[in-house]
Design a protein around this nucleic acid. Structure first.
Ligand code: MN
Ligand code: MN
Ligand code: ZN
Ligand code: ZN
Lengths: 127, 127
DNA sequence: ATAGTTTTGCAACTCAGTTGCATTAAATTA
DNA sequence: TAATTTAATGCAACTGAGTTGCAAAACTAT
């Protein structure tokens, strides 16, 4: 499929993720494009990019929504990103982790996905 | 310490958790005590009970706040409940899991806590 | 250019969670 | 028991993330 239309809004959001390979909260993204585009558009562009497998979303510490670039291999409705995330409780930065966490089998349950959020201090805030 | 005052509101909330050892969202709790107590009070009672180690909280699927009874051993600011939770994507029920999930060490990070939410179908919805 | 379709801005809305403040009800003390 | 102290409650107003409907603007294809 791919993104239906390469609009200015789409490009703007993509550039933010290209410029710096770092997870961003929607709140932060809206702040970054203040004056340039409407917050509703930000939400809608993010939705579309996620559907197309360009970025993936998860919930941060306070239930806020975060997004980060997908690794190669993700595409429309075939997200391979089910990695854990780490959020620093001091500076709030979020990192995608490539850890492989083993979840023991659950009897009588069908587990479809696993959301893991580690909380603590990042490298910068540790020292 | 213990709960400072055993008020009617505290008793009402505790009774709900005693009656049925099951996690409840704040939204559901407010619904359950509609007409009997104010939602602000529900939030405040839950805060206090959590601080005292009677219940523990976590974020469910959509970022909503959930609470469940603590096991023995928790007390004021010494929560031992860092277990994973399972939420059914069909009926929304949440279960506390006694799974022990091993998280590999993270270099240059200090990990304080781990939030794990498994999503899928519960026993009832599986069959 | 023209038409068809998607995307955007805007304003108004929803809904979980919070805050300030006056009132009420526990717990203490007399 | 009655008075005093202080924590807890109700209420109304607020905050802030996320959503919705609709008309206008911007893509894309012909
Ligand atoms: Mn990620
Ligand atoms: Mn639990
Ligand atoms: Zn940090
Ligand atoms: Zn279920």
């Amino acid at each position: 499929m791919g993104i239906v239309r390469k609009t200015k809004a789409v490009t703007t959001v993509l550039n933010i993720f290209e410029a710096q390979n770092e997870a961003k909260s929607v709140v932060r993204l809206i702040e970054l494009v203040k004056g340039v585009m409407n917050k509703t558009t930000v939400y809608r562009v993010l939705d579309r990019l996620e559907q197309e497998g360009v970025i993936h979303s998860f919930n941060g510490r306070d239930g806020l929504k975060w997004y980060a670039k997908c690794d190669e291999g993700c595409s429309s409705h075939k997200h391979l990103d089910s990695h854990p995330h780490f959020q620093c409780t001091e500076c709030d930065k979020v990192e995608c982790l490539s850890l492989d966490v083993k979840i023991p089998k659950l009897k009588n349950h069908k587990v479809d996905s696993t959301d893991i959020l580690l909380l603590g201090q990042c490298e910068a805030c540790c020292s």
